[in-house]
């Protein structure tokens, strides 16, 4: 590349690169410094170096591992449920949507509402005195579960997350489904293939790449969940809905243990990074194959 072209390219890349350096590069350094120090809000400007102490405290903390286990479970279960439901809706409703496009707008409404708001809305809907759901449970069945007690709260947050984000999987899969080559389906139909078989043998395999992507994105978002759980139940009874994000948040703001919070964040970053590289390597191999 000639010199002036290189200079041009540098000018073009500069805004983004400088922005990233300023707003992420600096914090990365801070993370490492504070992660290796003991700090509270009072001593924010004078951290005292304690080496890997924070990390060993995090690793020794049962609640950290509980939070990790919660996030993992939550991420996997919600991702699978959302993708299954989303796939069903996309494929089954596609003929309806082809004629009445507005139906999509109705189905995606939950995902454009802030998750934090959605958490609050569920809090209202499930409230034992003000919520319509317990009201109807009592009216129809003479009984209503305590949705937010220790036994049920995990299922409740899973359902809430699933119902809010199924539209995402639905929309992604619908877009992919609509761009499937029509001639393949038509050829199969002319050959006498029944709809059910058409779906399993032809459409589903063609949708698989998108389905993997949807699963991956939904897992990521489920794993890092914060807003809706936080506004619905906080860390839950006995802390059983403490996700990784909530764990770090509480270590930081509630307990003021900045070092431990940062150490946990760094560990989380490492885990996410490893997972991401793995997923990308898998994706590349799949695409190459």
């Amino acid at each position: 590349m000639p010199r002036h072209t290189r200079r041009e390219t540098a000018v073009l890349a500069a805004p983004l690169v400088l922005f990233l350096l300023a707003i992420l590069g600096f914090p990365v350094i801070l993370s490492v410094v504070y992660g290796l120090s003991e700090t509270t809000f009072q001593t924010l400007r004078s951290p005292s170096f304690t080496g890997l102490d924070n990390f060993s405290r995090v690793i020794a903390d049962d609640r950290f591992w509980q939070a990790a286990w919660f996030s993992l479970r939550f991420g996997v279960i919600t991702a699978v449920l959302q993708c299954a439901l989303g796939l069903f809706l996309a494929v089954y409703l596609a003929p309806l949507i082809a004629r009445h496009g507005w139906t999509v707008a109705v189905l995606i409404m939950p995902m454009v509402v802030a998750p934090a708001m959605m958490g609050l809305m569920y809090r209202l809907s499930l409230h034992e005195f003000a919520g319509p759901i317990p009201h109807y449970m009592w009216q129809w069945f003479g009984w209503s579960p305590a949705f937010l007690n220790a036994r049920n709260v995990f299922a409740t947050v899973v359902v809430a997350e699933t119902l809010q984000w199924t539209p995402f999987a639905f929309l992604l899969l619908l877009a992919a489904y609509q761009t499937l080559p029509r001639d393949v389906a038509e050829a199969a139909r002319v050959d006498g293939t029944r709809p059910w078989r058409l779906f399993w043998k032809i459409e589903l395999p063609l949708l698989m790449p998108t389905l993997w992507i949807a699963l991956f994105i939904r897992f990521i978002d489920g794993f890092r969940v914060f807003d809706n759980i936080y506004t619905l139940v906080g860390s839950g009874p006995g802390g059983i809905t403490t996700s990784m994000s909530i764990y770090i948040y509480e270590a930081f703001l509630r307990q003021g243990d900045i070092g431990r919070a940062l150490a946990a964040a760094i560990l989380l970053f490492g885990a996410a990074f490893t997972l991401l590289s793995l997923a990308q390597r898998l994706g590349r191999r799949r695409r190459a194959a």
């Binding site: 690169v17 600096f26 914090p27 504070y34 890092r224 990784m244 930081f252 996410a272 991401l276």
Partner: peptide
Amino acid sequence: VLFPLVVNLRALPLIIFAIPLYIM
């Protein structure tokens, strides 16, 4: 480097940035 880096930001838990940003 730049492109994968930026795109992968999407997958990172936001809380990771929140604390150092708070300090900054």
